[in-house]
């Protein structure tokens, strides 16, 4: 019944996601610590009266 090579799709999907995920992990963990800290403090910039 399957004649159009459709079984390749799950394989493509797996390879795509795996590569994407590994690259993302590598890049994220190579990020500069100071920058990460700056980014996580963004919501608090410009607060005149920080919360109780």
């Amino acid at each position: 019944m399957i004649s159009s090579g459709i079984e390749i799709y799950p394989l493509i999907s797996f390879i795509l996601f795996f590569t994407f995920f590994i690259l993302m992990l590598v890049f994220v963990f190579r990020q500069d610590k100071k920058h990460i800290q700056e980014m996580s403090n963004l919501p608090f910039e410009g607060d005149k009266n920080p919360l109780q």
Partner: peptide, 28 residues
């Protein structure tokens, strides 16, 4: 990611994790 840190008055636990969270979530 905005209101929980604001209400708790401390930054998000891991900004790195939030990046992974974002890309992995929208991809999957």
């Amino acid at each position: 990611y905005y209101f929980v840190p604001k209400a708790a008055n401390r930054p998000v636990f891991s900004y790195r994790l939030s990046i992974i969270h974002f890309w992995a979530l929208i991809f999957i």
